[in-house]
Structures are given as C-alpha cells and as structure tokens.
C-alpha cells in the first residue's frame, strides 16, 4: 500500500481519478482508497501534513507501507510543470534538514525542497519552496523506513508566473501533467515495499503452531524465529511432527534440536 499525501483538493482530484480511488472518509481528513494506493488531503502547512500522516500511520499489520507527498512548489526559474524528487528537505524555520534516499531510478531530477510557513515571494536560490514536506517527512519516518518515504513536487510558479495567479483549475492541470511520474514513483515504492514485506512477513505454518499449542508472547517470537531459520535452511516442519508434544516449550525444544 502506498499513501499519497496532498495538501489541496485541487491536487487530489487528478490523482484520485487516475488511480480510480473511492472516498472512504471526509472527517477529519478526506481519504480516498484504492487497491494499492490511498490518498489523504491534509490541508495546507507542515503541521497539517504531519497530522494527516499520523491519522493514517497507526494502522495494524506489519506490511511495510510507502508514503509520498505530492504537491506544487515554486522555483526561481524552473519551467512550470517540471517534476522534482526531493533529495534534501530543509525546514526554514528550524533549519533542520532531511535527505530522502532514492534506491530506485528516479524518473525526474532531484531538488532541495525548502519548507516555509507562508507563500514564498522571493524565490531565491536553486530551491523549491513549498509548505508541507518538513512536516510530512519526519512524520512518515515514524511509520516507514526512509527508502519508502518520498517527496515529489510539481513546479507551479516562478518569478515570471507568480503564485498569486494560480487557480485551483491550473493546480489540477499541473498535477495531471505530472501523473506519469507520480505513477512511476508509486510503482517503484510499491515494489520496494513488497520486497521488504517478504522479509518481515510471518514464516509458513506459524499460525498452525500457534493454533495448536499455547505460546506466550515471548515463546511466539522464538517460534517465529525458529521456523524462519528452518525455512532458510530449506526445512519445512509440519506441526504434526510434534504430535506428542504437550506444551509450547516442548515444541520449541524440538525445533531447536532440528537446527
């Protein structure tokens, strides 16, 4: 599952359409859900973006999930509609910086993203200015490894085409133009999350063992590890192998003997 966090409804609309997402909640955030992608509309600003991540982050299960913040940003002189994957995020207020690692072929150029509290009018330096990334990124890192958290921005304004002239329709247009890149990043992150999921998933037959004997939490962890180790050694041990065992401890002892 990949979660896309956007600030504005205008940013959400083309993405929702493209991925065929359906609305599942409207309060406290609008949430849209598909099979492999979901989207949340956070509202504008770092705090709102972090809150939206928190809202969806605490779900159950240990399947790794990817997070992408998609949104518009201003740049000194970059062409409108260009997409940039954040390689550095700087919170202008605190000075803190984060460096999202890219372990896939980025489908667009990278950029430093500077998060500001208000619409930036100066647009100095070779930076993208926007208002969410520095809230989104550290919040998402609480729920995923850094390789699964990315920030993707579309250049919406520059010193010639000022932010003041942006309309909701224009924002939607710009995001729609960038959808092939958004989709590529989603695909890459989904593949990485899947690979990671295979690593952290439960070993075969765990539930059969747990259903048959009473394991304490600690014993269940030991069981999981023993089954995983035996699996790595190419051995699949059926619970029936321990038909005579009367306790979880006896099963664990038996599995240890097999390594």
């Amino acid at each position: 599952m990949t979660t896309i966090v956007v600030a504005l409804a205008a940013e959400a609309r083309p993405i929702v359409r493209h991925f065929g997402l359906r609305p599942t909640a409207s309060q406290p955030f609008r949430v849209y859900q598909g099979e492999a992608v979901r989207l949340i509309v956070s509202g504008v600003g770092s705090a709102a973006s972090a809150a939206a991540v928190d809202h969806l982050g605490g779900g159950r299960g240990r399947r790794p999930r990817a997070w992408i913040n998609v949104g518009i940003a201003g740049h000194r002189d970059a062409a409108l509609g260009g997409l940039r994957l954040a390689s550095r995020i700087v919170d202008r207020k605190s000075g803190r910086a984060w460096y999202p690692p890219a372990v896939f072929d980025p489908p667009c150029a990278g950029a430093q993203v500077t998060t500001v509290d208000d619409v930036e009018r100066e647009l100095t330096g070779d930076f993208l200015y926007e208002m969410e990334a520095a809230g989104f990124y550290p919040a998402a890192l609480r729920f995923a490894t850094a390789e699964l958290v990315q920030v993707l921005k579309v250049v919406s304004d520059n010193r010639v085409e000022r932010a003041e002239r942006l309309t909701a329709a224009r924002v939607g247009e710009l995001i729609a133009q960038g959808l092939p890149v958004v989709e590529k990043v989603v695909r890459e992150l989904t593949a990485i999350a899947t690979a990671l999921g295979e690593r952290v998933g439960s070993p075969e037959r765990l539930n059969e063992y747990v259903g048959r004997w009473h394991f304490t939490v600690t014993q269940e962890r030991q069981l999981e590890r023993l089954l995983r180790r035996l699996g790595a050694l190419g051995r699949r041990i059926e619970p029936t192998f321990f038909d005579d065992a009367t306790s979880a401890a006896a099963v664990l002892g038996g599995l240890r003997q097999l390594i």
């Binding site: 984060w98 690692p101 372990v103 890192l141 609480r142 995923a144 490894t145 850094a146 390789e147 990485i192 690979a195 990671l196 690593r199």
Partner: peptide, 9 residues
C-alpha cells in the same frame, strides 16, 4: 538517521 534500511540502500 535511524529509519534506514542497509539492504535496500
């Protein structure tokens, strides 16, 4: 930083 994955990197 803590939240990194050596194998993925």
């Amino acid at each position: 930083p803590r939240a990194q994955d050596f194998r993925l990197q």
